[in-house]
């Protein structure tokens, strides 16, 4: 599973995910590791808007780990 470990602010992280999504052929599960709490809720909304799948998130120390399934059919 691809991991995006980034300290970047919200729009930059989402842009990174967007670039990854554009390169996906069928589907791909990815994990995003970020210190920014709002990224999880923003990615959940991003998934709804772009028809991707938000698999959930959990706190790991001072970081948030978010799982997504990127879909490109």
């Amino acid at each position: 599973m691809k991991v995006i470990d980034s300290n970047d602010i919200c729009p930059v992280v989402i842009l990174t995910v967007m670039r990854e999504w554009k390169s996906v052929k069928d589907e791909e599960e990815i994990e995003i590791i970020t210190p920014w709490e709002a990224v999880a809720q923003e990615l959940e909304k991003w998934c709804k808007e772009t028809n991707n799948e938000f698999l959930g998130y959990f706190r790991d120390g001072d970081k948030i780990k978010i799982r997504l399934k990127l879909l490109r059919y």
Binding site: P11, V12, I14, L15, V17, M18, W46, E49, T50
Partner: peptide, 11 residues
């Protein structure tokens, strides 16, 4: 710029 990049992230 944040809104513009956010907009592109939403395609």
């Amino acid at each position: 710029l944040v809104l513009a990049i956010g907009g592109k992230a939403l395609d």
